[in-house]
């Protein structure tokens, strides 16, 4: 059983890392990063069977892909806190000569990242390719991928959504960060996603739901999803989150999607997040 209290402590530190990374360079995407923190902490610290030493091919381990690459400060913090690279390297985020590019990349050889992401809509396809390679090799581990909800407006998502059920890619768990927000406002104002559950079911996916900001529920649903792999269907988890979760003035608005807090607001945000593992 996962220690939920410990996961929450990690999540608090990761949220601090997010605020400090984006504040230091006055750029980046804190909103979605804060919203998905509980999900990614649960995945890396309680759900995935992953090796500490990074291997590009991810053979015989669970692997994760971040399709909505703009929430990179979250991923970088989780990767560093998981031991993939030194935590102090978070101070190089978005700076010249850094491995921590604005959007995740393999170009600089950052451990934990297997493909670049940022231009939206591509992650599920790549994850399918890795899932197929695992099947070819008799590797029974799971491929996880996270996508944004606004990202579902990209056509490639639905090409991938058609492909995976048709080909029984059942070692694949897609999670949609369904916070209802995107840069220009609410999904429903920009381009409505309609009945997402009905859409994914119609495409042939096994659809699950979870509150992405309830750590215990996240752990339970992700483990349940993992248990359901190998049953002939890919899995899609519709994950409700609050953008900006953990910082009161950033919560539930798209205003902090791609904006960093100034000195005063960064201090205010950090005042709401306990330093549990030591700042970098």
């Amino acid at each position: 059983m996962a220690d939920i209290a410990e996961l929450k402590r990690i999540a608090s530190q990761v949220r601090r890392d997010i605020i400090r990374q984006v504040h230091a360079v006055s750029s980046g995407h804190p909103g979605g990063s804060l919203g998905c923190t509980d999900f990614m902490v649960a995945l890396y610290f309680a759900v995935m069977n992953h090796q500490q030493s990074f291997n590009m091919d991810g053979a015989n381990e669970d692997v994760f892909f971040l399709s909505n690459g703009h929430i990179s400060p979250l991923w970088y913090s989780v990767l560093a806190r998981s031991g993939y690279f030194p935590v102090k390297e978070l101070s190089t985020f978005r700076k010249l000569d850094s491995r921590l590019q604005g959007h995740p990349a393999t170009h600089e050889g950052l451990p934990g990242v297997r493909v670049a992401s940022g231009s939206l809509g591509q992650g599920i396809s790549v994850a399918i390719g890795v899932a197929l390679s695992k099947k070819l090799k008799g590797d029974t581990q799971t491929v996880f991928v996270l996508t944004g909800d606004g990202e579902l407006q990209e056509g490639q998502i639905w090409e991938a959504a058609l492909y995976a059920p048709h080909n029984k890619v059942d070692n694949l768990v897609v999670t949609v960060d369904w916070n209802g927000q995107q840069i220009d406002g609410a999904n429903d104002d920009v381009l409505s996603l309609g009945d997402l559950e009905a859409k994914w079911i119609a495409f042939g996916w096994d659809v699950m739901h979870m509150n992405g900001n309830d750590m215990e529920e996240v752990v339970n649903v992700l483990n349940e999803a993992k248990d359901k792999t190998g049953n002939g269907k890919p899995i899609c988890i519709l994950m409700k989150t609050e953008m900006g979760m953990g910082v009161d003035f950033m919560t539930g608005t798209h205003a902090w999607h791609g904006k960093a807090p100034n000195d005063e607001l960064a201090e205010k945000a950090l005042g709401q997040l306990e330093e549990t593992l030591g700042d970098y």
Binding site: A59, V115, V126, G129, V130, S133, K134, L162
Partner: peptide
Amino acid sequence: ERFFQVGIAEANMMGIAAGLAIGGK
């Protein structure tokens, strides 16, 4: 078993190809 028919979906094909390459293919 080594052939993947992706249908008329070239963007998905390029992504799947990238993923297969990650897996060592």
